[in-house]
Design a protein around this nucleic acid. Sequence first.
DNA 1: CGCGTCGTTGAAGCCGCTCAATAGATGTGG
DNA 2: CCACATCTATTGAGCGGCTTCAACGACGCG
Lengths: 241, 241
Amino acid sequence: MQAIDIQKFKASCENCNLAELCLPHGLNSEEMVKLEKLVRQNRPLQKGDYLFRSGDPLSSLYAVRSGSIKLFTNSDNGDEQIIGFYLPGEIVGLDGFDSLTHSCSAVALETSSLCNFPHTQLMDVCKTIPALQDQMFRIMGREISHENTLLLTIGKKNAEERIATFLISLSIRFRQLGFSADEFKLSMSRQEIGNYLGLTIETVSRIFSRFQKNKHISINNKHIQIIDRKAIQNACGGLRN
Amino acid sequence: MQAIDIQKFKASCENCNLAELCLPHGLNSEEMVKLEKLVRQNRPLQKGDYLFRSGDPLSSLYAVRSGSIKLFTNSDNGDEQIIGFYLPGEIVGLDGFDSLTHSCSAVALETSSLCNFPHTQLMDVCKTIPALQDQMFRIMGREISHENTLLLTIGKKNAEERIATFLISLSIRFRQLGFSADEFKLSMSRQEIGNYLGLTIETVSRIFSRFQKNKHISINNKHIQIIDRKAIQNACGGLRN
DNA sequence: CGCGTCGTTGAAGCCGCTCAATAGATGTGG
DNA sequence: CCACATCTATTGAGCGGCTTCAACGACGCG
């Protein structure tokens, strides 16, 4: 009884099936023990719960364990730009590494559990574990690469290409997680997809309908199935997912 | 004679007036000596010279010493998206930190000199100088923040707001460098400004003309003067530069 | 001077946005 | 379990901001 409760809050990186994608990647088991000492697991977030808000001091880095998180900036006049959707194994909280204050907000798109790495402690451990430092740089580099791709998508592609690129990107990430690459649930609304891609909700809806009419996908609410993967890939318009 | 030649290739971070903005920020003089041991200065790049190309293995990080660099991704079908323009004190080469291969290309916009930090050596020194590791994380965080801002600009602002935001951003950075905030030279072409902001060259030109007609700026070729700073700031449309 | 590149300006067209109406999904309380 | 309210998604019609196409002007360089 007691043991079960403790396990809920004490994370084990070594036994985690996401370890290879996550912070512990490249660490030996002795180093992993050091990392496990500082990681904490809070209670799961419910849909709509904030992980942090723009302006909050940077306290932790978060690894998604299950569920999904959206990250977005908000400008002074109220409108927001979604920067990314984070799936299990991915790291949230890298915004605000320059000013030690979050410049973005993060919200759960569905019930989600996360691992919590307190920032100052993590920085300290980084200084004693070279492989962890390397992995941190790799993860930040990945974040930069992802934003480069998104910039290319928003800046140079038309609506159809953006949606296709978005679907392929999700598909690849689900496959990496061991899920089906061709059939999955969209945890974000049309509104959020549109915001992310610099489109309106109506345009997103229309293009989903068009893809469906052309037998490229089958979409029912949030459930989507990629029927003609080649077609979607061709519709990306010279990509780099 | 000999001494002068050596100085051309041996950089001194301690005497560099950009040190506070650059990699050495936060280092004591003993640590700075360590960093100076690995930094190299190659001969200046001429306008149009490549610093590196997409697909090149990551060999170094570069700090701009004088001049300016443009960084851009290229998609498979040929078109490119400019990710950023780098001014003195800023760091180029953070793309490709995940795959150890550059995903972007970098080109000099004018005659530019750079400091060259070999990647593997830099990573090693990072492991022995905690303050340098901190600064590296800060710099990568800054890159991420910059791209967040650019995403918001391209995804949510109209053409006029994008140009205004671009001008204010440049202005602030020139002031930080000790130059005039209200009068400077654009080292990039209209084409490149448009590419960066997701606009066509014609739209850029038209909006510069409009701003000039409204007495917000005075622009002559690449020479620009901000006359009514308030007006330009208001035209940013809820910013965050 | 002649050529090529870059920038400016105008006119027309189109893609995605705005506005609006409806349908569908979800949740709540009686 | 149904009635009702609310939020989300779909679809259509019309508009508008930016792009496209085109012509011309301004430099810079051989």
